[in-house]
């Protein structure tokens, strides 16, 4: 089974890109599945159901979405194997611009949209920096120059990635993405594979349910901001 990890900021068009790419793969119905990792709620399963694509949704709830991803992705692979899938796609939303749910040796795809601001590629961090393929969506509504500058800003952060433009509505460009998916490694399990980048650190009192504000209530990993202390 081939495993593809797809990540990207909310509403960047991940689900649309996945749906169009699955269609472009042209594999028998039911042989490509999706596991969606989300935080609180998600409506994407309806879209996968409509296309009769086997899918599962997991909600991180109060857990850091990245930590939730890494502790469940092995289970996702087991589910895919049991279902006899030939391709499994994991879809996760990078909510704090720090997520990078990528595993060494597994094709990693980052989806960002051209409308999200010209400096977005520079702000996303590991999710973009460690991706093999960066998919840019919504390029059909901006000028050629903005597409080129956006792609340039992506290359400044990740010079080795392949940058593809995919139209999530018409599917234009999905064909090329599908070709990359076809060429990826076949696996049976993820056990003992390594993440490409450390997960966001999160062991402080607020992780465990503290709600009061004040230094005396803070424990564990706390990062203190330094303010300008000049008097006016």
């Amino acid at each position: 089974m081939k495993l593809i990890t797809v990540a990207g900021p909310p509403s960047s068009g991940k689900t649309s890109v996945i749906l169009k790419t699955i269609a472009a793969l042209g594999l028998p119905p039911g042989s490509v599945g999706v596991v969606k990792f989300d935080s609180l709620t998600s409506f994407d399963h309806q879209r996968y159901d409509e296309q009769k694509i086997p899918n599962q949704t997991a909600f991180a709830g109060k857990i850091c979405p990245d930590h939730h991803f890494v502790s469940n992705v092995e289970g996702a692979v087991e589910w895919g194997m049991k279902k006899g899938l030939s391709v499994l796609v994991t879809e996760s939303a990078g909510l704090c611009n720090r997520c990078s749910p990528y595993v060494n040796g597994i094709l990693s795809v980052c989806v960002i949209d051209n409308l999200s601001g010209i400096n977005t590629p520079r702000k996303i961090g590991p999710m973009l920096k460690y991706a093999d393929i960066v998919v840019v969506t919504k390029g059909d509504v901006v000028s050629q120059a903005e597409r080129e500058v956006f792609a340039f800003n992506i290359r400044e952060v990740n010079a080795s990635a392949t940058v593809l433009f995919v139209n999530g509505i018409t599917g234009q460009g999905a064909f090329m993405l599908a070709r990359h998916w076809q060429d990826t490694l076949d696996i049976r399990t993820l056990r003992d594979r390594k993440l490409r980048f450390t997960m966001p650190a999160a062991i402080c009192s607020y992780c465990t349910g503290e709600t009061l504000i004040g230094e005396m209530y803070q424990m564990g990993m706390v990062k203190r901001m330094e303010f300008d202390d000049e008097s006016p």
């Binding site: 051209n114 059909d140 509504v141 901006v142 000028s143 392949t162 593809l164 433009f165």
Partner: peptide, 17 residues
């Protein structure tokens, strides 16, 4: 080539910057 071969222009395109 990452789309560098082909530039596109259409009626639906706008500037967003």
């Amino acid at each position: 080539t990452g789309g560098k071969l082909v530039a596109q222009l259409s009626q639906n395109m706008n500037f967003v910057m």
